[in-house]
């Protein structure tokens, strides 16, 4: 007899069931039952936002070098569980072993890529500004705060990491809604995060329906930004409308249009755009004098 895993949520560094008690069946691409995953509710979203807000001061205040090492550590954990993730990706996405292993390898590479950005982004986007007067003036990028992230529905691991890593690399904390049909790699990733020195609450993972949960994230007054990558195209505009009530920063495929193309190709090297979406530029002035 094998010991089967219970797939739960990841909130504030702990693995609770949904407070709603709901679960939903997750099947492989061929229709076999894989697990009963927790189905997160509105209340779980609120709890996760509280956890993310609580973790923000510590994570945004950590040195960039430290954040880089932690994200690199996530890559190490992923590499160590390569076979497990490959099997879960293969089952979720209907891929052969070699293809699934390629996805895991690319996911590791993506984490390593973003780990290196933590202490370089400020140098390429910030700096001294030559103002016309006796002042020292500099600009630095800072994280926007708590970000809601709707992970892509198709790419269950590489896509997920590609949307989460830039957000936390910049010092934000986040509440992630996983793919609805393919949530198991996300929950296993949460387990890797839990052993990666990532402080609890920096990433919170909710398995469940983006259509149900996203409106609460988009309207939440203590969420500073939302990435709606995983929203259904016809739902994008409503989420962006809701986000306007608190002037949220938004990242949306196709600029939020419903007629945009489908899910992006996660294999290509990302641009800076996903990091730029959730940073603020702070400019500090001080006079020169004796």
């Amino acid at each position: 007899m094998t010991v089967r895993k219970t797939y739960k949520l990841y909130i504030g560094g702990a693995f609770p069931r949904s407070e709603s008690g709901r679960v939903y069946p997750v099947t492989s691409s061929s229709g076999d039952l894989l697990a009963q995953a927790a189905q997160a509710s509105r209340k779980d979203v609120r709890d996760a936002v509280v956890a993310a807000r609580g973790a923000f001061a510590g994570w945004s205040g950590a040195t960039a070098y430290n954040r880089g090492q932690v994200i690199y550590r996530i890559a190490e954990m992923l590499e160590g569980r390569r076979d497990q993730f490959a099997a879960e990706v293969a089952a979720a996405e209907g891929l052969g072993t070699a293809a699934a292993e390629g996805i895991v390898d690319a996911s590791v590479d993506r984490l390593v890529w973003y780990a290196g950005w933590t202490d370089k982004y400020a140098q390429i986007t910030g700096g001294a500004n030559p103002v016309s007067g006796p002042y020292i003036n500099y600009s630095v990028p800072e994280p926007s705060g708590v970000i809601g992230v709707l992970a892509p529905q198709q790419s269950s691991l590489l896509g997920l990491i590609s949307v989460v890593a830039p957000v936390i690399a910049m010092g934000n904390t986040c509440v992630v809604v996983s793919s609805f049909a393919r949530p198991l790699p996300a929950i296993s990733l949460a387990e890797a995060l839990g052993t990666s020195d990532l402080p609890g609450g920096v990433v919170n993972v909710l398995s469940g329906s983006a259509a149900e949960l996203a409106p609460w994230l988009a309207a939440h007054r203590d969420v500073n930004g939302i990435d709606i990558t995983g929203a259904a195209p016809e739902g994008r505009a409503n989420l962006l409308r809701s986000a306007s009530d608190t002037v949220k920063r938004t990242y949306s495929p196709a600029g939020g249009r419903a007629d945009g193309p489908g899910e992006e190709d996660w294999a290509t090297e990302p641009a800076l755009r996903r990091m730029a979406a959730f940073v603020e530029t702070k400019t500090v002035w001080h006079p020169l004098g004796i």
Partner: peptide, 21 residues
């Protein structure tokens, strides 16, 4: 977005201006 230390209301074309939240 803009922090003035020992000064206030300084503006310059080379200095980024804009807000958080």
């Amino acid at each position: 977005g803009v922090v003035w230390a020992n000064t206030f209301n300084r503006f310059d074309p080379a200095s980024p201006f804009g807000g958080y939240k």
